[in-house]
Design a protein around this nucleic acid. Structure first.
Lengths: 342, 342
DNA sequence: CTGTTAGCGCTTTCAG
DNA sequence: CTGAAAGCGCTAACAG
């Protein structure tokens, strides 16, 4: 209601100067106990709230950190955000979160807006359609530190935090080989996207490293990576290949869609076909069979990237590149590895 | 890099006054085309970016809207946020999002911080442990409109947007009855929480409305509402009841946990036991059997609540209470309703 | 211990 | 069409 009380209102009412009030409020050492008491009491009474905008203008800071992500509606990114928030809120920062919906244009617009808002730092995971980094260069040129996470921006210089995508995929395929699978298929995501390209590469290399060949008829490229895409991808796979006994899916969603159709077609998992996904989504362990998958330290990624960002904000530090390790979570959708091979 | 250019820098360089520059930049009608051109060109060259903090201080606005939710890591809330963001970003607002993790203390702190930041409006879905609304009253008293969504704050006066929880639950139980189920159990959530209490009430009423009684032995109260809770709840249910042929679960997570254990114990779904959940989570249709559940217009809730908030910000409007309708999504985890009853 | 002064960057009367 | 001046609310030298 009405105008909020200012420091000047308090000063006038107490017949002292605004600076004294300011100092009293900020608990400055050289202010008499009595004055402090008077000021605090009146402030309380008037329900005084400091105007952060004024303070920010003076101090040239905003107290907010920006986050740009492709989408918030995924376990992955919402968990990263939780990690980020736990760190930055502990040091008094607020978070401005925006999603690009995988649109490059939107990303450029958002980056620009963030710079305008004078965010003190920016965390970004670029969209799949991002093809240049001038928008991020601009942000950095305005003196705002940027940290990239999860998805790389090759050539853009900044601190970065990733999960070792290749390693996770390699582990998965290696496990399938070790468990005795002979015809291991792969439902690949759009390989124009580096993350999926890496999973694809790991699939091929894991195979060749064991003296096998990556048979093209065992690979199907999915245009998307949702559960629906998994359904149609496995449908095509079954047409072009025969006798497959394992599928490494580009992510859990696709794996879940794939399992769905396979079961409908009467395949037994894992007796007929082993399935491994990627991401360890919350419900993946509740499917039957429970999905074997790759777990990623998602929350940690949020913690780490925001820590790196805070470092860059506080002092000029050299860029750091951190790579977190994923883990294979063995459940029921894959055959067991014979114990003698341990 | 270096100091960002200000309006004064431009003024000096062009030998005109800051006010003229300001007007030129804002395309004020009474400025000569030539001056405008000069100013814009130099602004471009100096990479001038208006200082929003200064402008906000003057205009007494912040351009941001606050959102307080229990958690961001759920399909439900992240989808609501998407709806909110689609509306508010179209009119130039930025979003500050914070999660309470169901902590009342945290919620109070956040509400206070939001007020301090001078957010222009606040959207809140209170935590389950929220017992009073003084923190929200305070926000409103500072002149910041508040809109409550999804979970009610009884007695707190503001615009509110909810889904008709009772209706959804009633539909679910009614369907089970109509499909011929005789012993319909309920895994209830913590009934201290209004949402779960309502689902419970609907369960009882749907039964009694059809001339049945809500048998206490068919009801199990779960302390939580995760998939794990569903597992243990159904375990207890099987001990205390016999021959149940349907379970209405408080939400999809619990239903998924319940189905998991039931399958392990050899029950066939829906032949032996029909299952209905609540929420229609993204993967619910991919379980086998696909889960029958209640869908809620989550995105719409985000749209609507932010629209109501914008209305309150722009002009004094009376509070509005909106109730959105959920829908029963029939899939495979429930027996079919005989067609003659249609 | 306290007051004076100046200014953060911008907009907006009020005068020309 | 343009300039001078005032001020949003707060803080920080610099003086006492």
């Amino acid at each position: 209601m009405d105008k909020p009380a200012t420091i000047i209102d308090i000063a006038k009412a107490l017949n002292i100067s605004p600076s004294t009030v300011s100092r009293a409020l900020n608990d400055h050492p050289s202010i008499s106990a009595q004055t402090k008491k008077d000021v605090h009491e009146l402030a309380e009474k008037l329900n005084y709230q400091p105007n952060l905008t004024a303070r920010n203008l003076l101090k040239k800071r905003s107290g907010v950190i920006g986050v740009i992500i492709p989408e918030i509606t995924s376990y992955f990114f919402s968990m990263v955000i939780t990690g980020i928030q736990d760190i930055v809120s502990s040091v008094g920062y607020k978070l401005i979160i925006s999603q690009t919906n995988e649109s490059f244009e939107e990303e450029k617009k958002l980056a620009h807006e963030m710079a305008l808002m004078r965010v003190e730092g920016l965390l970004v995971s670029p969209s799949f359609n991002t093809t240049g980094y001038e928008h991020l260069e601009e942000v950095r040129k305005s003196g705002i530190p940027v940290v990239i996470f999860d998805r790389d921006c090759p050539g853009f210089e900044s601190s970065k935090v990733f999960v070792d995508v290749y390693d996770g995929a390699y582990q998965a395929v290696k496990y399938l080989i070790d468990s005795g699978c002979q015809k291991i298929a792969h439902i690949a995501g759009p390989v124009s996207i580096p993350t999926f390209q890496e999973r694809f590469n790991a699939y091929c290399n894991a195979l060749t490293d064991q003296g096998r060949v990556a048979d093209p008829s065992l690979i199907v490229y999915s245009p998307g990576f949702s559960a629906e895409d998994g359904v149609s991808a496995v449908d095509r796979l079954l047409e072009q290949a025969s006798e497959i006994d394992a599928i490494f899916c580009v992510n859990d969603a696709v794996a879940i869609g794939a399992m769905h159709l396979l079961r409908e077609k009467g395949y037994r998992i894992p007796q007929d076909i082993s399935i491994i996904g990627y991401d360890d989504e919350p419900y993946s362990c509740y499917f039957s069979p429970a999905l074997t998958t790759i777990w990623q330290p998602v929350y940690d990624m949020g913690l780490l990237s925001s820590r790196l960002l805070l470092d860059s904000i506080n002092k000029k530090v050299p860029f750091r590149h951190e790579v977190l390790k994923p883990e294979l979570v063995i459940r029921e959708s894959s055959k067991e590895k014979p114990s003698f091979s341990l």
